[in-house]
Amino acid sequence: MAIDFIDVVQAIIDGLLFGSTYALIGLGFTLIFGAMHKLNLAYAASAIAGAYVGLAVILMSGLPIVLTFVLGPVAGGFIGFGVYITCFRYMPATNMLAPLMASIGALFFIDEIIIHATAGSPLAFPAVMDDVFLEVGEYGFRGDLIFVLVTSLIAMLVLLYVLFGTRLGLATRAVSQQVVAAELCGIASHRTNATTFAITGVLGGLAGCMAAAAVGVISPLLTVPITVKGLIVTVIGGLGSIPGAIVAGFAVGGFENLFLLLFGVNQRDIYVFLLLFVFLVFRPNGLFGKAINRD
């Protein structure tokens, strides 16, 4: 099969647009890692669960479909907070393995709840602006993907403002840099960590809705692949790096779609993992990674 240059560019465009959801997922992993130096493996599962709750409320109440993209993130925030309380809050600060295993437990626990609640079958997820198609020269932009991109970008801007422009964000960053000093500056680290989990949960819920809307269905089968993609994005961007997660999210989205075009759906993920492998060998700290030091 001959592949045109136009096809290649179009695939990358679609991938970049969809990559904004990966960027949101990667941001969640990286923010929690930055705050606590621990991985929350239940994060992508709570993102999908948030989207499910949003969808369920809309289906049962008959509210306008667009509200899914508000209720999903809200539910994601609560689920994120719940994961913090159950898997992180009461674990010894120096024990890295206990919260990691607990969050894996939470991942499968959430997964099982979804499977039981939906009898394991995928549900149709509403898309927004899917009747829009923007043509620029020989290239096209899918309306639903533009919606995904724009919403994600707005979420990122709000996040960056909170993190860099408000005392709340400065407090969470202070805790991640010097936890003892932060507490002695009057910052309750448990509370800022809980806030970080809730904020990332909101991002995750949004990302879950976006991913499901772009694909058109939501299914419990999404949780593990999105967990893996999110982790790949986080590692490529550099653990704990905010710009890294954003850039890597778009990059992985773009490459993934390019691999899909070139090698087909069966081999796509092999090449995504190859990309990860290349980074782990040649740039193990990621794009924006840095040496880690704190208390």
Partner: peptide
Amino acid sequence: TFQNIRLFGELTVWQNLWIA
């Protein structure tokens, strides 16, 4: 204050005071 300096290195001087 701390004997071994423990500032919030990635925050500005002004933000270090604002936080406290």
